[in-house]
Nucleic acid binder design. Structure first.
Lengths: 126, 126
DNA sequence: CAGGATCCCGCCGGATACTG
DNA sequence: CAGTATCCGGCGGGATCCTG
């Protein structure tokens, strides 16, 4: 993945200018949402820890391959934790980490903006 | 573009549950960021209105096709406004709309989360 | 100057089948 | 149950060239 951010210091989000680490942080946040299902998975887990098949049932139209992929990425990114219980057959539980739980303010900000945006924009598309 | 959100009412971001319009709003917000360059373009325009080639120079490694595409999408989505002046040759200025300018709190929330997230996660990747 | 037209490739994500 | 393996199409996005 290309990161033009590294050389792109002049990007400004705040009036004082946006240092490189801010861009990295922004990028991190964006990476959490990339992919078609990541948001759904996080959403499913905000109602509490769940097992693989539970999440699968919770999210219509997702297939195991995708769910597996997304969960793995979220785990690597420290958003979701995976716990294996050696029952028979194995039980695996997924849960939001602290970071995962703290994404909510971001969602809230996005929703707040989105709602306002929708009000002022008569949706022509879709 | 598939929108599983429409049938997916059980997604919860807030404890009270997340109504469908919230999901749509969240989705709207996400659509603003999708694409490799959209964020850069918004960033470039936060420092004020700019012409096509100015934005091009502002963002390293972007090519005209991409810039054109992103600007068009942002315009359709009501984030950016396009003004044509009939000089010779034509001059075109791009500017953030009100909605576009008001994205900043969202960015701020993302950055705040991202910074916190980075602190607790010793980056193993990259 | 401000893009459009074409070509092309990687990879995201869907479908289906299989396993410890 | 909790995933892999494999195959495959679409499209996001790069490079290059062209135009009103």
């Amino acid at each position: 993945m290309k990161k033009p951010y590294d050389t792109w210091v002049d990007f400004r989000v705040s009036p004082e200018g946006c240092p490189k680490e801010y861009m990295l942080a922004l990028n991190d946040a964006l990476n959490v949402f990339t992919g078609k299902w990541k948001l759904h998975v996080i959403g499913a887990l905000t109602t509490g820890k769940k097992r693989f098949s539970e999440i699968e049932r919770f999210i219509p139209d997702i297939n195991p391959r995708m769910l597996s992929k997304e969960l793995k990425e979220l785990e690597v990114n420290g958003i979701v934790s995976r716990t294996v219980y050696d029952t028979l057959p194995v039980t695996v539980e997924y849960e939001l980490t602290r970071s995962g739980r703290e994404i909510r303010p971001v969602f809230d900000a996005m929703i707040r903006w989105g709602l306002e945006h929708r009000k002022t924009n008569i949706k022509k598309k879709r």
